[in-house]
């Protein structure tokens, strides 16, 4: 039904909140289908914000009351040292998404064809638990010696499937808080700890890898539950892309046809940087080197590709130089993604 003629005359009243509830709904359902009305509505709303000159101020004390109320309504990201800021931010962003879910959303399949949203959170808690154990935070159930990421996930899944989503969420968040707290305290020092997350990673890289995986699964959960979400902040995407680029030679050395003494250059738009990467981890990167291929693509799409969430054959990429090599490297990239 086209309400354009009715809505056009109501837009001014709508922008002033001077319509009946029914008319307000009518206007809002028309906006979004009609570019002209949407544009006018936007302009009139902006104008309405200028009806009063804003020179009154809330009383003293209002700010402190607000900040304390905000903390109790929604916890901020846990305080963390700079290298763990992307991790802390992903914890907060995922909690925001999860806190909005209805009971039936938790049962939706969100990844790997069989993991529900609840399972996926248990999986994230399990892998975070490997970091937690490495920095001396007690975890439930206790880790077994030599327990890898997959075994850890299986153990935590068994436990969490007996519990409610709210319980899983509480212990997942408490564990993340405890990890950040331990990192802030600085024992052990970040340089002295290695965490095995499929790859053995120094502590700082392990936290970046955690941030990366949490974000990728946040997108899985948002897609499975029809929720909106946002990509990580640029300053958090950068270390994620950097880690992925540094790890790439470990998969290209096994999946790209020799000769392996070649280099590719990644120009990741939005990251403000380009990386020259060898095909094999043992190859040094000289100061001046001519890459065999240059791949230009969006940093977010690059991260989704290495996170196993994009088809390398269909990703939007610009290739210069050796196209065959570039295609092989793209095809190898998703092999970096942990399963699921």
């Amino acid at each position: 039904m086209d309400n354009h003629e009715t809505v056009v005359h109501l837009i001014g009243a709508w922008a002033l909140d001077a319509c009946s509830t029914v008319e307000e709904k009518l206007v809002e359902s028309h906006l979004g289908t009609c570019p002209a009305c949407t544009e006018e509505a936007r302009g009139l709303r902006e104008a309405a914000a200028g009806i009063v000159d804003d020179h009154l101020r809330p009383p003293a004390g209002a700010r402190a009351r607000l900040l304390s109320a905000a903390r109790s309504r929604r916890r901020p990201a846990p305080a963390a040292p700079a290298y763990a800021a992307p991790y802390a931010a992903q914890i907060a962003a995922l909690e925001l998404l999860l806190s909005d879910l209805a009971p039936e959303h938790w049962r939706r399949i969100a990844a790997d064809g069989e993991l529900t949203v609840h399972d996926l959170l248990a999986h994230l808690a399990a892998t975070d638990g490997l970091v937690a154990a490495a920095v001396g935070v007690p975890v439930q159930p206790p880790t077994e010696p030599g327990e890898g990421a997959a075994a850890r996930t299986a153990a935590v899944l068994r436990r969490e499937r007996q519990r409610s989503p709210e319980q899983t969420m509480r212990s997942w968040r408490a564990q993340a808080d405890a990890v950040c707290h331990a990192l802030l305290a600085g024992h052990p020092s970040p340089g002295s700890v290695t965490v095995d997350l499929g790859w053995p990673l120094p502590l700082a890289d392990a936290l970046t890898a955690r941030a990366f995986e949490i974000w990728i699964h946040r997108e899985d959960i948002a897609a499975a539950t029809g929720r909106r979400t946002v990509t990580p902040l640029p300053e958090h995407l950068h270390p994620m892309a950097d880690l992925a680029v540094r790890l790439l030679p470990r998969v290209t050395s096994r999946r790209v046809a020799p000769p392996l003494d070649r280099y590719v250059r990644w120009r990741l738009t939005g990251a403000g940087e380009a990386w020259t990467v060898p095909l094999h981890p043992s190859m040094p990167v000289p100061a001046v080197v001519r890459p065999a291929a240059v791949l230009t693509l969006d940093v977010v799409e690059f991260c989704r590709l290495v996170g196993g969430r994009r088809d390398p054959a269909r990703i939007a990429v610009e290739i210069e130089g050796d196209t065959t090599l570039a295609r092989e490297v793209l095809a190898a990239a998703p092999a970096m993604a942990p399963v699921p």
Binding site: H9, G12, A13, A15, L16, G43, L44, E46, A47, I51
Partner: peptide
């Protein structure tokens, strides 16, 4: 009334 509200806001914009 509707058109005055709309016109007023347009001029304010």
């Amino acid at each position: 009334a509707k058109s005055q509200l709309r016109e007023g806001l347009r001029r304010l914009a």
